[in-house]
């Protein structure tokens, strides 16, 4: 899984990682902050962080002692483009179908 969008989608397939990202949307956090809400081992938490980091969804400061995590915007922008496309070819088509069906039926006809 090497292309950026697939990495993003793979990272987001897990609810723990989605929760971590939502936490980071409120500001930077340390790994232990991010792991605190979950009953998971330290290695499990680290693994989730690594997946998010590899997908470019978070970055970690090298300077500070606790290497806080920060949410990165670029992969999310690409993802929302994809989701808009996805919605267009599913929900959007149903909207178009609805509009077309309305044109085929006389207005005010008893239903």
């Amino acid at each position: 899984m090497t292309d950026p969008l697939s990495l993003t989608l793979g990272a987001l397939a897990d609810p723990t990682r989605r929760a971590m990202l939502l936490r980071l949307s409120q500001g930077v956090a340390t790994v232990s902050d991010l792991g605190a809400p979950f009953a998971l081992s330290q290695p499990a938490i680290s693994k989730h962080i690594k997946v998010l980091e590899r997908a470019g969804l978070i970055s970690r400061s090298k300077a500070a002692q606790f290497r806080p995590c920060r949410l990165e915007r670029a992969p999310l922008a690409q993802l929302t483009d994809f989701m808009a496309h996805f919605a267009q070819v599913t929900e959007g088509q149903l909207d178009q179908l609805e509009t077309y069906l309305a044109t085929l039926q006389p207005k005010g006809a008893p239903t």
């Binding site: 697939s6 989608l9 793979g10 989605r18 939502l22 999310l76 989701m83």
Partner: peptide, 30 residues
């Protein structure tokens, strides 16, 4: 497995509503 993971990510978005949540994050960050 990779295709299934990609599908799972998108399904979580369609039905879990994170596209909306992350759309909001994106707007905020912008």
């Amino acid at each position: 497995e990779v295709e299934e993971a990609t599908f799972d990510g998108a399904r979580a978005g369609m039905q879990g509503g994170w596209d909306h949540q992350f759309g909001q994050i994106e707007t905020y960050l912008a």
